[in-house]
Design a protein around this nucleic acid. Structure first.
Lengths: 339, 339
DNA sequence: TCACACCGGGACTTAAAATGACCCGGTCGA
DNA sequence: TCGACCGGGTCATTTTAAGTCCCGGTGTGA
């Protein structure tokens, strides 16, 4: 297949450029619809006039509908986007990069979406979309999914949509409060995700900072205990990865802890655990819920994280425990492979 | 595969037009190289300026070499042409047409090359190329191939090239003289073909018009007898089809025979046999060699004939005895399917 | 050996397409 | 009701494709 496209490229070298451009427009349109010409042009770094011509063209092709409230994809546009997804990934060389990355990081499967979420926030949503697709493929009715927090996971939740496979799934937060803002807490995210999936969810209301005794007694509470049990038998765990410094700063981390993280050269964070460059745990936030040691090999761990800036963090975390699935973006992938 | 191209077409509707145009240029170039810009433009029905731009482009792509004596394909050009052959056939809808035609005419396999040999004589050579490819695929060392006459078969011979599979093959004329010019007699053609294939050949020198007695005694001559034996055990028979009228006019056909052909509404000719619309033999030229009745089912009969004008003749002939392989062109195929 | 046909390539004009720049009236939500 | 965003119209400018004509070189056949 790719071979054919290579041949086509010889007879029509800018084939890919044009295809990519138009595909990108449709792709972005799908995320933001309905959206106007100017906004679209700004987001895609195209001159307004150029985008206008392209849109005109796409309209001719019956791929987009132009209404007074903005442009939307037609059914044909949706289908085209779906049908071309694999092709576009292939021609962008992402497929190659995926297998390369998978073997490099020792993960079972790597999925790379094009773009760099550092530069364009919509790339995060594309990762979200990819993640949702994976979930729908791998989940079975009645499964339990443990969901961590963070902005990336919020994007995943946002992209969730109902499906036969996920409507009877239970979404639970992976761990208790970590001092994050409410929109990116795992509680919020798992409930959002459940609602969008028409699934069930359970909340884990635990104050952020607790003394050890309180925590121990809390864990014995029947409601909490049951939920923790549920979390531990989750079929799938979905989480993000952050840069240690950024994460620590974002949370109400004590000054002495910050100092200690710096001393121990923490670079990555996931689940409230902090890791150094070699993948060793250097700190662990005290909260209840899923513990990394609890993870067994028949659980599917999906890591979702992108942006070139997170490359080092992802690499470090994967040294600790390679996930089953890594969903990342081109920016991060390139940085990781360049290393 | 074709599916992908359908999708591509939605994002780039003139993809195929451009590809076809450039492919056609390379294709023609392969046949005529070295050839000049103007000649090429005239043959392809392109304005000189347009062709010039295209050639400029192809040069940039390192697909053609431009020398002082004309343009030639580079190695890359050759490879591209080869690699794209199937794709181009597919996108041109020829593949569909092939299977349609095969079931319509009841032949095992139909091969259609694009173009119409009525309009462009080089299409005949493309049929020749296709025929040669089939021969190389199906023949085995030591096989015997019986070759008929005609301009189309001459084109096949011209396109023959050496190959492991055909270098030990023997080429024999299918039948004796039919009153044709020497260049398109089966004797000439089989020897040309053999030489180009680096194979062996045997000639069948028989005067055109013979009395029955002479013929009968000739058949008993040891040399002739052996050759006739060889012909009868040919593994493959390759022949063309002609329009009855044209063929009769071209040969030194007696006036009364001409009259009889007209009476019996002969439309097709092959091997010196004439057929009417329903596929019945209405006349048979008297000469020695392969007789249609001799054909057994384990012989491969390849019919090579193209041009819209021959459509009716081909259809008629196929009603008599569907060949194993029919090699024709787009013009004839369309006409046959339209019927 | 000369003429002629064919070769590639340069130069210029014209036609068409792409793009940039700016404006207008409508619509929808705060 | 105001303002931000919407699609669409218009026109000058730039870029690209195409038409036209010409030139000097080269090989071949008379």
């Amino acid at each position: 297949m790719r071979n054919v496209i290579e041949l086509q490229k010889k007879l029509l070298p800018d084939l890919l450029d044009v295809m990519k451009k138009r595909y990108r427009i449709l792709q972005y349109l799908r995320l933001r619809q309905p959206v106007g010409r100017r906004t679209l042009a700004r987001s895609l770094d195209l001159s307004e006039r150029v985008l206008r011509s392209e849109v005109m063209f796409l309209k001719e092709q019956n791929l987009v509908h132009i209404g007074s409230g903005g442009m939307t994809l037609t059914e044909g546009g949706e289908n085209l986007l779906e049908g071309l997804e694999e092709v576009m990934k292939d021609v962008s060389g992402l497929s190659d990069m995926e297998s390369q990355l998978a073997s490099e990081l020792n993960v079972q499967q790597a999925i790379i979406v094009s773009g760099n979420s550092d530069r364009y926030s919509w790339v995060k949503k594309e990762m979200g979309r990819a993640c949702v697709r994976q979930m729908k493929e791998q989940l079975e009715p009645q499964d339990v999914v443990a969901v961590a927090g963070g902005t990336t996971l919020a994007a995943v939740a946002e992209m969730m949509s109902p499906d036969d496979n996920v409507s009877s799934v239970s979404f639970v937060p992976a761990r208790g409060g970590l001092g994050e803002k409410v929109e990116i807490q795992s509680n919020t995210i798992s409930s959002t995700m459940a609602q969008k999936a028409h699934g069930n969810y359970r909340l884990l209301h635990v104050p952020d900072q607790l003394s050890d005794e309180t925590r121990e007694s809390l864990v014995l509470e029947p409601g909490i205990k049951e939920l923790l049990h549920l979390i531990r038998q989750a079929k799938m765990v979905i989480h993000g990865v952050g840069e240690a410094e950024t994460m620590a700063a974002r949370r109400k981390t004590k000054a002495e802890t910050l100092e200690s993280l710096k001393d121990k050269q923490a670079v990555a964070e996931a689940f409230g655990y902090y890791f150094d460059r070699t993948g060793c745990i250097v700190h662990k936030e005290n909260t209840i819920g899923l513990q990394l040691d609890d993870l067994s090999s028949n659980q599917v761990v999906m890591t979702v994280a992108g942006g070139a800036s997170k490359a080092e963090a992802i690499t470090a975390y994967m040294k600790y425990r390679p996930s089953d699935v890594l969903i990342t973006d081109e920016g991060a992938a390139q940085a990781m492979l360049r290393k």
